[in-house]
Amino acid sequence: MDDAERRRAADARNSARELRRAGLYAEDEPLWKEDFPLTSAGEEYIQRRQFTRYLLATSAAFAVGTAGAAAWANLQSANHGEAQRIVELDKVANGSEYLFSYPTDKDPALLIRLPDGELRAFSQKCTHLGCVVYYQPENERIFCPCHHGVFEPSTGDATAGPPERPLQKIDIEVRNGVVWAKGMEV
């Protein structure tokens, strides 16, 4: 604190005391107000420039957080996965689903065998807010219970509810009676 600032603070404190003497403060006004003189009489001593310093720090903190989230999202999408064995084909009946993880153990995925025997595989994360979706063969749809999002099981397209983007598709292949995941479709 330089001399000028000290003088200003003392002035402001005196103003507060005078306000008290003039009866503009209530009798039971707490004592700390004398030592923290940011009353309407003293608040002009906060410069707008000083104030914006904190504003800038807050904004920069948010920007760093948002950039971190973006970096995380980009890293996630960079992992398109390697070939991975899922399950023997005859263990998945027509009109049923099989749950597995792909491309990492933390990414739930869904293998669907449609009533006509066709196979489809999708990430199990809803494209709205990331809830886990599941196959409802009786309604011929993939359903998200969080906000009642609905996806088309043969294409993964969003057909009802809040999701607007299709489920992320996984490339699959049947080799010697075994279903393999080959990678995430980009």
């Binding site: 948010f62 950039a67 973006a70 999202a73 994360k125 809803c126 807010l129 992320q168």
Partner: peptide
């Protein structure tokens, strides 16, 4: 940006980050 992460939409998160830094 958080929604971009949750829904695996990297371009959404990136756009939010660019706007945030610009702000």
């Amino acid at each position: 940006a958080v929604e971009g992460v949750m829904s695996h939409n990297a371009s959404l998160a990136t756009a939010a980050a660019v706007f945030s830094v610009l702000t």
